[in-house]
């Protein structure tokens, strides 16, 4: 016998993961291709690095807005922009 998912349970996690990944790229307020979405037991974790603290906050805001029932954890950093301390010599 085929078991059907309870419609009330929402879409399977894999589709949610795919939707979040696309939201991160296609939402003009985010437009990030370098954020990885990883499914953990208790939450979806967002990893990656962005160019400003504002962008990090915006990512969390937009994802939480669109998926209010999905527990999201963020581990997104802001990329350093200091002058280099070493050069690479290429003979």
């Amino acid at each position: 016998m085929t078991h059907h998912r309870d419609i009330g349970a929402g879409p399977p996690d894999e589709y949610v993961e795919a939707e979040i990944q696309r939201l991160l790229v296609e939402d003009p307020a985010v437009a990030e291709q370098g954020i990885t979405v990883i499914r953990r037991e208790r939450a979806l974790v967002l990893y990656g690095e962005v160019e400003s603290p504002h962008r990090r906050e915006e990512i969390l805001r937009r994802v939480s807005e669109r998926f209010p029932d999905v527990p999201i954890t963020s581990d997104i950093g802001v990329i350093r922009a200091q002058a280099p301390t070493e050069i690479e010599q290429l003979p």
Partner: peptide, 27 residues
């Protein structure tokens, strides 16, 4: 890519007469 190098830019000295003394100021 900035997220890969994690600094404002990378510097490459390309050539056949590299001198390590020349590169110390940037450090």
């Amino acid at each position: 890519a900035h997220p890969v190098i994690k600094q404002a830019y990378s510097v490459f000295h390309v050539g056949d007469q590299l001198d390590t003394d020349q590169v110390s100021p940037i450090g």
